[in-house]
Amino acid sequence: MERALYGDNGFYRRGERPAEHFRTSVNASPRFAAAIARLLVEVDALLGHPDHLDVVDIGAGSGGLLTNILACVPADLAPRLAPTAVEIAPRPPDCPDRITWRPDLPDTITGLAVANEWLDNVPLDVVERTPDGIRTVLVHPSTGSERPGPAPSPEDQDWLDRWWPLREPGDRAEIGHPRCAAWASVVGRLSRGLALAVDYSHSRVSRPVYGTLTGYRDGLTVPAVPDGSCDVTAHVALDACTTAGERAGATSTLLTTQRDALRALGLSGSRPPITLAHSDPRAYVTALCRAGEDAELTDPSGLGSFGWLTQTVQIPIPSALTSA
Rank of each mutant, 00 (worst) to 15 (best):
E2D: 10
R3F: 04
A4Q: 05
G7F: 05
G7H: 02
D8T: 13
F11V: 09
Y12F: 15
R14P: 14
E20R: 15
P30Q: 05
A34Y: 01
A37R: 05
R38T: 14
V41S: 12
V55W: 05
V55K: 03
A60P: 06
S62Y: 04
G63W: 04
G63E: 05
L66V: 02
I69H: 02
V73G: 00
P74C: 01
D76A: 13
L77D: 02
A89D: 03
P90Q: 02
P90Y: 04
P103W: 01
T108L: 13
I109G: 11
G111P: 12
L112T: 13
A113S: 15
W118Y: 15
L119P: 14
P123D: 12
L124G: 11
V127H: 01
D132K: 09
D132V: 09
R135L: 08
T136D: 06
V137P: 01
P141D: 05
S142L: 14
S145G: 10
S145K: 13
E155N: 07
D156M: 13
D156I: 01
L166R: 05
R167T: 12
E168G: 02
P178H: 01
C180H: 03
A181W: 03
A181H: 08
W183C: 10
V186D: 08
G188W: 01
R192C: 12
A195P: 09
V198S: 02
S203V: 10
S203K: 06
R204F: 01
V205P: 01
V205I: 06
V209W: 00
Y210I: 11
Y210P: 04
Y210Q: 13
G211Y: 03
T212S: 12
T214K: 06
Y216I: 03
D218Y: 00
T221P: 13
V225S: 01
D227Q: 05
G228N: 02
S229R: 10
D231Y: 04
T233H: 00
A237S: 09
E246T: 08
L254W: 02
L255K: 05
R259T: 14
A261H: 07
A261F: 06
L267F: 05
L267D: 10
G269Q: 07
S270T: 14
S270D: 15
H278Y: 10
D280G: 10
R282C: 12
V285D: 09
E296T: 14
L297V: 08
G302F: 08
G307I: 12
G307E: 13
W308K: 13
L309I: 14
L309Y: 10
L309T: 11
Q311Y: 12
V313L: 12
P316F: 14
P318C: 15
L321R: 14
T322K: 11
